[in-house]
């Protein structure tokens, strides 16, 4: 087994990321679905046509709300966005983090002599 070093920063991001993803996707997703909205978005109808919007304010004039999620899509999106930004920042942190060389060293052919 190669040596694995997971820093405290990595652990914190892994925990936060997992918690945010689990809450935003399956947990709130189940609440929204069992709450009666089959879509994470606000669904609307207007005569023969229908569609989806991010909020009630985004539906066309004269259209009626068919189903509205208990928790709006932008609130869930915000949780996902925070998780992804944390993950991206961690990647940049790892790039500039002072530390040991990668465990698997590759010796260039020119330095073998």
């Amino acid at each position: 087994m190669t040596d694995e070093t997971i820093t405290t920063v990595e652990k914190a991001v892994m925990l936060a990321n997992a918690a945010l993803v689990v809450i935003a996707m399956p947990v709130i997703g189940l609440i929204v679905t069992l709450g009666g909205s089959m879509s994470p978005m606000v669904s609307w109808v207007q005569g023969e046509s229908s569609g989806y919007a991010l909020s009630a304010a985004g539906i066309p004039e004269g259209a009626q709300v068919a189903a509205s999620p208990l928790i709006g899509p932008n609130a869930r999106a915000l949780l996902i966005a925070v998780a992804l930004v944390l993950f991206g920042l961690l990647a940049v942190y790892k790039l500039f983090q002072p530390g040991a060389e990668p465990s698997e060293s590759v010796v260039p052919s020119s330095t073998e002599n």
Partner: peptide, 17 residues
């Protein structure tokens, strides 16, 4: 990074997030 912008701006979530 690119998909991050596409995901949140396209917001094609009518059938799931």
């Amino acid at each position: 990074f690119l998909m991050f912008f596409f995901y949140f701006v396209n917001a094609g979530w009518s059938h799931g997030l």
